[in-house]
Amino acid sequence: MATGWAGDGAVQDQIDATVKDGIKRARSQLPQGPGLERCEECDAPIPEARRKAVPGVKLCVACQQAHDEEDGAHSGYNRRGSKDSQLR
C-alpha cells in the first residue's frame, strides 16, 4: 500500500539501495594486488597463511585490528534503529 507520493515498495527500495551502497563501499576498501611480507606500520612479518587468505594484505593482524577499531569509532551510521536511519 502506497502512502503519500511514494510508490509501492519505495521504502524497501531505499533500504535495498542503502545495503547495495554499503556492500560496494566495503568491497572498494578490500586490499588488492600483491601482499607485503612485512607489516607496513610495525615491520612485523606477515605469515604466509595470512597473505594467502587476504590478497593484498599490508598490515599484520594486530595493526589491522587497531585500524579496524579506529574506523569503527568513526563510522557514519546511525545505529539507534529509528526508521529515519534506514532511509536515505
Rank of each mutant, 00 (worst) to 15 (best):
T3P: 00
G4C: 01
G4H: 02
A6V: 02
A6K: 09
A6M: 09
G7V: 07
D8V: 14
D8R: 14
G9W: 02
V11E: 05
Q12R: 13
Q12N: 07
D13K: 15
D13I: 08
Q14D: 12
D16Q: 13
V19K: 10
V19R: 12
K20M: 10
D21P: 00
K24C: 02
A26C: 04
Q29P: 00
Q29Y: 06
P31F: 11
Q32R: 15
G33E: 03
P34A: 15
E37K: 15
R38I: 06
C39N: 02
C39F: 05
E40Y: 12
E41N: 13
C42N: 00
D43Y: 06
A44V: 05
P45F: 02
I46K: 00
P47Q: 04
A49W: 13
A49S: 15
K52E: 11
K52V: 14
K52N: 09
A53N: 05
A53I: 02
A53V: 03
A53K: 15
V54G: 03
P55V: 05
G56D: 02
G56Q: 00
G56R: 03
G56M: 04
K58Q: 13
L59E: 00
V61M: 08
C63L: 07
Q65E: 13
A66M: 10
H67Q: 14
D68H: 10
E69Q: 15
G72P: 01
A73P: 01
A73F: 07
A73M: 11
H74W: 12
S75R: 15
S75F: 14
G76Y: 04
Y77I: 12
Y77M: 05
Y77C: 05
N78A: 13
R79Y: 15
R80E: 10
R80Y: 08
G81I: 05
S82I: 07
S82W: 09
S85A: 15
S85F: 07
S85D: 07
S85W: 06
Q86I: 03
L87Q: 04
R88F: 06
R88E: 11
R88L: 12
